[in-house]
């Protein structure tokens, strides 16, 4: 029996910043509904990997296939060409991204932040976009804050708006890049609970995180990255309970307090 095609297939991904090789051949599959956490020390290439999947970074080798479509590049006579702005934008809309520093649009209200993509990218009428925005803001517990501006919201609230903004676009895949790293400690849990909620709703998530307990809790699979490669990967219980490589064991020792 053939395994169905994965939702996301990363094949032999390589990326250099100048002379520095950041990704040295990464292969990773995600199926529909998977929640995969990427852990590893800073500089291991985790965030760069996410940014490549969202086409915010160019990469030099390998392919990223999302739902059967090779994204970012097309090959003509064996030569890779970066796609044009319009095609890249269409493909970016298939994935949602939540950033470490929230990156809300400061001139738009919470609802306006969620509505912008619905209006401009999905071309929905205003009333419909507003309704979807209100539904998603309610989903992240911010129904009463729809007309607040980002500067009037706490960090945790801003990040939940950012989550609503990403999910309202109904992406095939959501990328979460250290979404609690910029938060005050007492605000971390509300954001993690929100992410857990959307994971339980069946969203496909690729998460870069330093919250080990959370990764263990929420992930169907955990990937340990080290120096631009996937060093070890497996079910959360295996990775945390029974690390095979010495390097992973050492990493876990150093992060667990």
């Amino acid at each position: 029996m053939n395994k169905p095609q994965p939702l996301l297939a990363i094949r032999g991904l390589t990326k250099q910043f100048g002379a520095v090789e950041v990704l040295k051949g990464v292969d990773l599959d995600l199926d529909q509904g998977d929640v995969v956490s990427i852990i590893g020390s800073s500089g291991s290439g985790k965030t760069t990997l996410l940014r490549c999947v969202n086409l915010l970074e160019e990469y030099q080798g390998g392919d990223i296939v999302l739902d059967g479509e090779t994204i970012g590049y097309r090959s003509v006579n064996g030569r890779r060409h970066r796609l044009g702005d319009r095609a890249l934008s269409r493909q970016r809309a298939m994935t949602g991204m939540v950033f470490q520093s929230f990156n809300l649009f400061p001139h738009l209200s919470a609802a306006g932040n969620v509505m912008l993509g619905l209006r401009k990218v999905l071309k929905l009428p205003k009333a419909e976009a507003r309704a979807i925005a209100e539904t998603w803001l309610a989903r992240v517990g911010l129904a009463a804050r729809a007309d607040h501006y980002p500067s009037q919201l706490s960090g945790g609230q801003q990040q939940r708006v950012a989550i609503a903004r990403a999910l309202a676009m109904n992406p095939k895949l959501v990328l979460l890049d250290e979404v609690t790293s910029a938060l005050d400690p007492e605000l971390v849990q509300e954001v993690l609970n929100t992410v857990k909620g959307i994971a339980e709703d069946g969203a496909t998530l690729l998460i870069v995180t330093h919250e080990m307990r959370f990764a263990r809790d929420v992930s169907s699979r955990v990937v340990f990255m080290e120096q631009g490669r996937i060093h070890e990967e497996g079910p959360a219980a295996e990775i945390f309970g029974n690390p095979k490589s010495a390097r992973l064991a050492e990493f876990l020792r150093n992060t667990r307090h």
């Binding site: 969202n54 915010l56 702005d85 934008s89 950033f99 990156n103 001139h107 993509g117 990218v121 990403a166």
Partner: peptide
């Protein structure tokens, strides 16, 4: 204009022009 805000606009699928008009110019 913070770079991250521009990336956020691109990440939800706004084209370069849409990003400039709806996000960069007002800020």
């Amino acid at each position: 204009v913070p770079k991250g805000v521009i990336e956020a606009a691109r990440s939800i699928g706004l084209t370069r022009l849409q990003t400039n008009v709806s996000v960069v110019a007002p800020i």
